[in-house]
Each structure stands twice: as C-alpha cells, then as structure tokens.
Amino acid sequence: MLQGDATRLSFEGGTYSLQAASAAAATGSSDPVVPVAEAPAAALPEPQTEGRTSLTIQEIALAAHIAKDLPPDTEPGLSATYFFEPKNFTFPFGTHIAVVEVDRETGDIKFLRYVAVDDCGKVINPMLVDGQIHGGIVQSIGQAMYEEVVYDEQGQLITGTLMDYAVPRAHHVPHFELDRTETPSPGIRWASRVLVRQVRLVLHPLLSEPSLMRCRHSVLSISTCP
C-alpha cells in the first residue's frame, strides 16, 4: 500500500487518519488486478522448462506488455485502477476522560489522569493507531488550552512565532492511559474503521469554553468557574 507520495500516485489525500489503510483493508490489494491478469491468459507462453507448470510474474508481465498474441478487445499491460466505494461509511468511537485539578486562585489547569478507550474496528498496526490517538489528544489540548491565532486591529498577526503561539510540548501534556475495544465494521472486508482524528471532537468540549477555560480568564471573579 502506498500513500502520501504525490510522485507515485495520481490521486491521494494524505494519510488522513489512516483512511488509506482502511480502504486497502476494505478492498484487499489483489482484487482489482486479478481480472486483468486473467484476460490475456490465452496469450501466455508455455513454461519453457520441462516439468514447470507455472510462470513467474515477470514472464506474465512481459507477455502482457509485448501483447503479441492478445485476444481481440484486450488491453495490453498488467495494471488496473480501481475506485472503491464502501457500502457505508465507517466511524470510530470512543470515550475520553480527563481528570483535572483547577487552581481556583490562578485558573491554572493541571491534569491528574487522562484515560481514553477508542474503537477503530480491527487494528492493523497498533503503533499507528496509538500515534493517531496521542496526536489527537495533544492537538486537542493545544486547541483548548494554548493555541490561538490572534490579529491586531491593523490585521497584523501577533502570534506569528513559537515564542508567542504556544504549541503544547511534552511537559504540557499528561501521561495517556489508553485502551481499546475492537468492534468489526460491517461492510468492510477487514473490518477496520477509519480512525479519524475524532479524538479532537471528543476532547475539545471537555476542556474548552464554556467550561474550564472560563476559569483562566475569569479568575478575578472565580464564582463563574464550574
């Protein structure tokens, strides 16, 4: 499976939360090629060596490309482009719980625990799945607590450097306690689900206004803090 390489793929949307993995899982990579390979079978040469009953892929490819004895209406070559449309879209799901301590005097938020259980169907590569979840949590913490693009009245960007625009670093984020369930996705052959960075959608309301962040900005009238 190839993804994220515009020099080799005519159409590609980036890894986009492992969508390509899910698509590959859904189709099975050999499926689209098989009908093409069968088509010129009549034109294939006999194995040259006595007792051999099979051809190498190189021999088949050569015969398909030279196209000397292809049957009528058969396209030369041995490639196929296949567009896949699933029977239905798939969605991951999960629950994230952030246990935080709010300093009522300063509005500071401190994570005590962060527990997340997500389900993206059949897991193909656990490391990539965990990586998607780590990334989603950290982006969410950034969005909810630190990151903001701010322009002044003249339209000048005033959070233009990493000295002003806070991207969360390691010491800003808690230890993640992760677990998963694997609910097979109906209609997808390998039962995987696209693990969209839906984590962000989960976490953002947890930490952002109008809940915890209000504390920080209204610490001077702390009664509004939930």
Partner: peptide, 14 residues
C-alpha cells in the same frame, strides 16, 4: 535561620 523560594508562572510558549 533562613528560607528561600522561587515561584513562577511561565509563559506556555516562551
């Protein structure tokens, strides 16, 4: 008999 402390609120970016 003496005691020292330094308390700081760091800017999250800088």
């Amino acid at each position: 008999k003496f005691g020292h402390a330094y308390e700081k609120v760091p800017h999250p970016a800088s």
